[in-house]
Simulated assay, not measured.
Amino acid sequence: MTGEENYVEHALRVGEELTGLSLEQLGLEPQLEDLAENRRNRLEADDLEWAGSITPERRDRSLFQAKLLAGALWEASAVLIDQLFEDLNGLRNLERVDRQDIANTFVLSGLPPRHADKYDVRFARQFLVIAADMTGALARRWTRPSCVAQELALRCLLDQVEVIQDLYSLDLAEDWRSRLEQHMLEDTDSEMLYQNAMDGFEDDIELNMQLGLAPMKIQDWFEPFTDASVPPYVR
Rank of each mutant, 00 (worst) to 15 (best):
C147K: 05
S62W: 06
Q195M: 12
E4P: 00
D171T: 06
A36F: 10
W221P: 04
D120A: 03
P232S: 04
C147G: 11
A66Q: 04
M216R: 14
I102L: 06
A124G: 12
N208W: 00
L94P: 03
V163T: 11
P30R: 10
W142D: 11
S190M: 11
Y7L: 14
V163S: 06
S146T: 06
V121A: 12
D117V: 08
C147H: 04
E75N: 05
D220P: 09
D159W: 07
Y7W: 10
E49Q: 10
D60F: 00
F106N: 05
E181C: 08
I130A: 04
L63T: 07
Y194A: 07
R125E: 14
S178A: 14
H115D: 13
V230M: 08
D82W: 04
A124R: 03
V107M: 09
F222V: 09
F123Y: 07
D199Y: 12
E37W: 11
T135S: 11
R125A: 08
M192I: 02
T188E: 15
N104F: 11
R140N: 13
P231C: 07
E86V: 14
Q219L: 09
L48H: 00
D82F: 05
G212W: 05
R141W: 01
M184D: 01
I102A: 05
S169W: 08
A139Y: 10
Y233M: 05
R42I: 09
N196H: 02
V161R: 04
L157K: 08
G52I: 07
T55H: 13
L28H: 11
V97G: 01
F222R: 07
R40D: 02
I164S: 09
R177M: 00
V234P: 13
P145E: 10
E162V: 12
